[in-house]
Design a protein around this nucleic acid. Structure first.
Lengths: 175, 175
DNA sequence: CCTTACATGTAACAAGTTACATGATTAG
DNA sequence: CTAATCATGTAACTTGTTACATGTAAGG
């Protein structure tokens, strides 16, 4: 049930097309929520049917129209209600840790290769998050409420990735 | 597709019943993988059909029999093959961060309440992981390979929770 | 020519959740 | 008597993945 609220929250920030929402999930929202374009289009269709969204057709020169979605009052109300209901913590699911658990069966070189890839991915992510931090959140204390919350979400991503990289050092020493 | 390998990995550690596997997912494997008992029983059924597992009926005095599952050779081979194939990183999905993203709409008291609950949960988890660490992993360097890998998985849980608690401090200051 | 980005979808299948169902034993 | 733990499942539904499908525009 949370995908729909992730979409409503993203559209509360600003109207967007399905394509743009999919991109946000892969970039700025990467540490918050994720969904493939197929899921996004399907869920947008449902939300539209239910009257939680409005679709505005945006004509483009030399290209087919694109559909920009906006929250309706009903959509905002729905989001607000969800926000006020406590949600359970998401369960951890990490295939790499599953592998470690059966680590004595695994090929050490394969694990080391995966560790190397993880490092690259996390370093790329950290650099990206840092660049957002520097560009938009120089004086976090002076931020209007709207951005302060987003900054806290970003800080979550940053602190998690830093801790992950530190653990990777431990891992590569122990592997 | 990963649930089946989580089960095979858990059964590679030691044979167990569906009930016990469900419990492991909630305790020692909480930072590794998670599944409800319904999922566990269904997947065990499939694995049994496919010949990846054998079920041994264990009679109990005054209680109905329970079924203890063992890896077969085919099951071990299957697990081994999966271990050697790199897996994609799991996508992040955190409803609480979704809430932060629309934080200016949310009720501050509700967010603070959730933050409080998270703290309790993480502190409980950390204490639990620490207790395992102290009981079984006193001299990590002297550990046989089998346990060394499990220790690295445990360290992942510990470092993540510590980072989470530090972020919580930031959050509660900023909320 | 080929690949990447833009832009939107459908269909089939796998994974995960929620509700329902049953029955024994143990601790308060 | 009641709740919790042990122990195992089925059925319906929702969510997420993979494969398929189509077409434009820009850059190398």
């Amino acid at each position: 049930m949370a995908l729909r609220y992730a979409l409503l929250a993203a559209l509360h920030e600003s109207p967007a097309t399905g394509y743009e929402l999919t991109q946000r999930f892969r970039s700025r929202l990467a540490n918050v929520w994720n969904a493939s374009h197929q899921q996004v289009y399907r869920e947008l269709g449902k939300l539209l049917e239910e009257g939680k969204l409005l679709a505005e057709s945006v004509p483009q020169p030399d290209k087919p129209d694109k559909k920009r979605y906006h929250l309706t009052v009903a959509g905002q109300k729905d989001l607000k209600q969800w926000l006020d209901k406590p949600q359970p913590r998401p369960p951890a699911k990490d295939p790499f840790l599953v592998k470690l658990f059966a680590g004595n069966l695994a090929d050490k070189a394969v694990l080391q290769g995966e560790a190397e890839k993880m490092r690259e991915e996390w370093e790329r992510q950290l650099a990206y998050y840092r660049s957002i931090e520097e560009e938009y959140f120089q004086q976090p204390d002076a931020l209007p409420a709207h951005y302060r919350y987003q900054y806290l979400a970003l800080r979550r991503g940053i602190t998690q990735v830093i801790a992950s990289l530190e653990w990777l050092d431990e891992l590569e020493n122990g592997l």
